[in-house]
Amino acid sequence: MLKKILRSYELYLLMLPTLIYFAIFQYGPIYGVQIAFKQFTISRGITGSPWVGFEQFERFFSSYQFWNLLQNTLLISLYELALFPIPIILALLLNQLTSHRFRKLIQTVTYAPHFISVVVMVGMLYLFLSPSKGILNQILMLFGLDPVFFLAAPEWFKTVFVFSGVWQNAGFSMIIYIAALAGVSPDLHEAAVMDGASKARRIWHIDLPGIMPTVMILLILNIGQFMSIGFEKVYLMQNSVNITSSEIIQTYVYKAGLLNAQYSYSTAIGLFNSLISFVLLLSVNMIARKLNQTSLW
C-alpha cells in the first residue's frame, strides 16, 4: 500500500491541504461535543468537567419551550421547503425570453437583493412593514383595509420571514438552474418544434427532465440544511410580541450559550438539532436514490 502511495505521491500532496482543513476545522471541533454530556465549567476545562449523562438533554426536553421551539423550527423549515420550486419556475420562465437584454436585466434585478446584508435587510423590513408609514400598509389602506403591524404579530412572523427570504435569494438560487438549462441540448427542442410541441409541452418534457438531476441534488442539500435556519435574521426580527412564533432552536441556543453561559446545555441542544438534520439527510438521499438514481453518494 505504501508503494502505491509513493507512486502517486503528487496526488496525495494535492489532497493534503484539504484534508488538513477538514481535520482542523471540521473534525477537530467534534472533540468538544462531549461537553453535551458533561457539566462544563470553565476552570475544569473540556476533559476535566464531570460527566452527567443525558441530563442536559432531559432539561431541554422538559423545558416549557421545547414543543414550541420544535414546532417553530419545523414549520419555518417546511415553509421554506415548500417554496423551493420558486427559483426553478423563475429559471424556466426566464429561459423562454427571447430578448437577450431584457433577460439580463431581469436576472440582475432579481439577484441584486442577495447582496444586501441581513442587518440592513431587517431594517428595510421594519420600514416597509411599519404600520403607519410602511408601503405595504399604505397599499392596504388604499383598499380600505386595516393596517397590520406585521413584525409584531406572531401569526405573520413566519410568512414575513420566509417570503422576505424568497425575495432576497430566489434570484441568486436561480442562476444555477439557468446554467443547467443552458446545458439542455437544442437538438431536442428543434425536434420537438418540428413535431409541433407547444412551449408548455417543451418545458414539461424537455427542460424539466433536463435539469432534474440538478434539482434533486439541490433539494437534498436543502434538506441537509433543514432545521438550520439562518439564526441572525430570526434573532434580528424577534421582539417580545412575536416571540411565541419566532423563537427557534438556533436563537434559543444562542441565548443559552452565549448570553447565559450555559455551555453544556446549548451544546446538547445543538447536537440534538444536528442529529435530526443528519437523519433527514440520510433518508431523503435514500429515497432519491430509489426513485431516480440521483443522490449525493
Binding site: R59, S63, Y64, Q65, Q238, N239, S240, V241, I243, T244, E247, K255, A256, L259, N260, A261, Q262, Y265
Partner: peptide, 21 residues
C-alpha cells in the same frame, strides 16, 4: 439559578412574553 432563571427572566422570557401577550 443559572439553570432555572433564564427561561423565566431573560428578555422575551416567559414573564416578559406573557405580560406582552
Amino acid at each position: 439559578l443559572a439553570v432555572l432563571e433564564p427561561e423565566l427572566f431573560q428578555e422575551n422570557g416567559y414573564i416578559d412574553s406573557q405580560f406582552t401577550q
